Simulated assay, not measured.
Amino acid sequence: MNKVKAAVSHHEREIAELRANHALAVEYLKASMESLEAPNDRVAGLLALLAVLKTVGMRLSVEPERELHA
């Protein structure tokens, strides 16, 4: 199976658009927060929220925090 060289993932394009347009990112954030209140929309809301977080460079990790010992 050949991959199309010019293809870009939807997620990558979404992040690029949100980074390029601050007003769009703000509205996207508002919509994602609202969708968290509706049980049938929570997954989509969480994915949208993740996209917004990635636009500002935040990284989420599921690894436990390590304690630093002096």
Rank of each mutant, 00 (worst) to 15 (best):
R13H: 06
T55I: 06
E37G: 03
K3N: 10
E12S: 14
A51I: 06
G45P: 04
E65G: 13
V52N: 01
S9V: 00
R66F: 09
R19H: 01
E37N: 10
V43A: 13
R59Y: 03
L46H: 11
N21Y: 03
K54D: 12
L47W: 09
Y28G: 02
N40D: 14
H69D: 13
T55Q: 04
L24V: 04
E65L: 15
R13W: 09
S32Y: 05
E63I: 09
A51C: 07
A20H: 07
H11I: 11
V4Y: 15
L60V: 08
E17Q: 13
M58Y: 15
A51T: 07
E27Y: 01
R59T: 14
M1Q: 05
A31L: 11
E14P: 00
H10A: 13
S32T: 09
N21C: 05
K54I: 03
A23Q: 13
E37V: 08
L46F: 04
A48P: 00
L18T: 06
L49Q: 07
K30R: 14
A38E: 14
H11Q: 05
V56E: 02
V43S: 12
A6G: 15
L47S: 06
E27R: 10
D41H: 15
P39T: 09
H69Q: 14
K3L: 14
V26E: 08
T55C: 07
S32H: 02
A16R: 06
R19F: 00
A31C: 09
A38S: 12
S35C: 02
M1K: 08
E67P: 04
A7W: 13
R66N: 10
M58F: 12
H22T: 08
A7I: 06
R59I: 05
V62R: 08
E17G: 03
S32W: 05
Y28C: 01
V8W: 02
G45H: 05
R42H: 04
A6T: 13
R13E: 11
V26M: 09
N2V: 09
E17Y: 07
I15T: 03
M33H: 08
L46M: 10
S35A: 03
L46G: 12
A70E: 14
G57K: 01
H22F: 13
H10K: 13
L18S: 00
G57T: 05
I15A: 09
I15P: 01
K30M: 08
H11W: 05
L29D: 04
Y28L: 05
R19L: 02
A31F: 10
A51E: 01
Y28E: 06
M58W: 05
E63F: 07
L24I: 02
L36V: 01
V52W: 07
